[in-house]
Computed example of a mutant assay.
Amino acid sequence: MQQRARFYSLTIFLAVTLSIVTGVSAEPDKPVIRLWPIEMVGVEKNRLREEQIVRKDKISVTNVLDPNLTVYLAKSDRPTAAVIFCPGGAYKKLSYRPEEEIKKWNDLGISLFLLKYTVPDNPDAAFKDIQRAVRLIRHQADKWNIDPNRIGLQGNSAGGHLCVRLSQNYQQKVYEPIDDADRVRCNPNFVIARSAAYFQGRKSDLEFDEALFPMKNKVAPTFLTYSKDDKFSIGGTEYAKRLKKAGGTVHLKLFKGGGHGMRGCDWFTPATLWLKANKIIE
């Protein structure tokens, strides 16, 4: 009897703290922009298909079959800056905390677009997704009250890697044009990368991934932030040094501790000051 009671208690605990959802999971009142025509994502059965796990304040998404953007618009009479947010998760899942990592951008007067890029284990497909995402938002700037010259990227961990990859390689042609949106440029106007991973390769087996980060193109102003005890900070510091040497604008903010998740680090305040210094927001 006592063992059965413990089993029921555990079952109730899991039901309260863990929710698994298959299918579209966007907030009902938030618009969703699908990136690709339905025939490119496996026809109608895959429309907005994903697997989502909700643990209290954290959401993890995987098996994204129909990459998309969820729109969080800032209230403004004038065109706003925009951030495309790329969650981390080792290119295996997308993990983020909505209250902590999404809605605060609106308080700055910045509209945010949550990018659910292709996962798991397909960084090159994710790179196509982020190119297409920037083009669609810039192409639809009037619709979303966005300033097309103030569209930036913010990414965590693998998402930060993806953002910086685009800032370096926006001229690469990685898919055939689909519509008028693909006539629009996909280079970001600014980049904020938090705990960006894999500058030394996904297996950390390189000194520096020069193939993916060649320092050849004009790169958007970049804000990098790490905890010093994060193993990926070594690659990020090297990236900042190389970008500065190449003539790029980069700001590296390091915190003493906090690990890869930057626990307890207020990186958002210096990032906000950086945005103001670069005249992206007032």
Score class of each variant (00 low, 15 high):
residue 205 D to K: 04
residue 132 R to I: 10
residue 205 D to R: 04
residue 188 P to W: 15
residue 156 N to A: 11
residue 197 A to V: 02
residue 171 Q to P: 01
residue 237 T to Q: 15
residue 213 F to W: 15
residue 120 P to N: 06
residue 53 I to N: 04
residue 147 D to W: 07
residue 52 Q to A: 08
residue 201 G to A: 05
residue 149 N to A: 09
residue 280 I to N: 01
residue 203 K to M: 14
residue 113 F to A: 11
residue 107 D to Q: 15
residue 187 N to T: 13
residue 253 K to N: 14
residue 247 G to N: 10
residue 42 G to V: 01
residue 275 L to K: 00
residue 147 D to M: 04
residue 181 A to K: 08
residue 280 I to D: 00
residue 7 F to C: 05
residue 2 Q to W: 00
residue 164 V to G: 03
residue 245 K to P: 03
residue 47 R to K: 05
residue 221 P to A: 11
residue 106 N to Y: 03
residue 41 V to M: 06
residue 264 G to Q: 08
residue 179 D to A: 13
residue 115 L to M: 08
residue 122 N to S: 15
residue 82 A to P: 11
residue 194 R to L: 15
residue 12 I to W: 09
residue 118 T to S: 12
residue 170 Y to L: 12
residue 209 D to N: 15
residue 129 D to Y: 03
residue 54 V to H: 01
residue 131 Q to N: 14
residue 213 F to T: 14
residue 170 Y to P: 00
residue 172 Q to A: 06
residue 125 A to P: 12
residue 251 H to K: 13
residue 92 K to Y: 00
residue 258 G to V: 10
residue 177 P to L: 07
residue 220 A to V: 05
residue 59 I to P: 00
residue 100 E to N: 09
residue 239 Y to H: 07
residue 244 K to C: 02
residue 11 T to K: 15
residue 171 Q to G: 11
residue 40 M to F: 11
residue 47 R to P: 00
residue 167 S to M: 12
residue 88 G to D: 00
residue 215 M to D: 15
residue 112 L to I: 10
residue 6 R to Y: 08
residue 195 S to W: 02
residue 123 P to A: 07
residue 253 K to Q: 14
residue 261 G to L: 10
residue 249 T to K: 07
residue 227 S to W: 00
residue 159 G to I: 04
residue 225 T to Q: 03
residue 151 I to S: 03
residue 51 E to M: 14
residue 30 K to Y: 01
residue 139 H to E: 04
residue 42 G to T: 01
residue 2 Q to C: 06
residue 279 K to T: 11
residue 69 L to T: 10
residue 39 E to T: 04
residue 170 Y to R: 09
residue 221 P to S: 09
residue 164 V to M: 05
residue 177 P to I: 05
residue 5 A to F: 09
residue 176 E to C: 01
residue 24 V to N: 09
residue 174 V to N: 04
residue 87 P to M: 02
residue 164 V to W: 00
residue 104 K to G: 09
residue 146 I to W: 06
residue 116 K to F: 05
residue 125 A to L: 10
residue 14 L to W: 09
residue 251 H to V: 13
residue 245 K to V: 12
residue 155 G to H: 04
residue 105 W to N: 11
